[in-house]
Simulated scan of single mutants.
Amino acid sequence: MKTSRIKFVSIFLIFAFAFLFGTISLLDQPVESFLGSSSQTTWKAVVSTILSPVKVILIGPLLPFIKFLQQDPDTPPPFFLAGFAFYWTILALVLHYLLSKIKHAW
Results as ranks from 00 to 15, higher is better:
55 K>T: 13
9 V>A: 02
54 V>P: 13
103 K>W: 05
104 H>M: 15
67 K>V: 05
76 P>I: 13
74 D>M: 04
76 P>V: 15
1 M>I: 06
31 V>Q: 06
51 L>D: 00
24 I>F: 11
53 P>A: 05
14 I>T: 12
90 I>M: 02
87 Y>R: 02
37 S>E: 14
14 I>W: 00
40 Q>V: 10
75 T>W: 06
74 D>P: 00
70 Q>M: 14
82 A>I: 15
39 S>A: 10
15 F>G: 04
103 K>A: 10
99 L>A: 11
101 K>T: 04
75 T>E: 08
83 G>D: 07
12 F>C: 01
13 L>R: 01
82 A>R: 15
5 R>I: 10
5 R>F: 08
94 V>F: 13
24 I>G: 08
57 I>K: 04
19 F>I: 06
82 A>Y: 12
76 P>F: 05
3 T>F: 12
86 F>R: 02
86 F>L: 15
49 T>W: 00
30 P>I: 10
34 F>K: 00
67 K>R: 08
101 K>F: 03
53 P>W: 12
88 W>K: 03
59 I>G: 00
37 S>W: 07
80 F>H: 08
83 G>I: 06
4 S>V: 09
87 Y>L: 03
18 A>K: 14
35 L>D: 12
83 G>P: 03
73 P>Y: 05
79 F>R: 13
98 L>T: 01
28 D>H: 14
63 L>K: 10
21 F>V: 01
13 L>G: 02
39 S>K: 07
99 L>W: 07
45 A>N: 05
78 P>M: 15
31 V>N: 06
11 I>D: 14
19 F>E: 07
28 D>Q: 08
93 L>P: 00
76 P>W: 01
34 F>D: 03
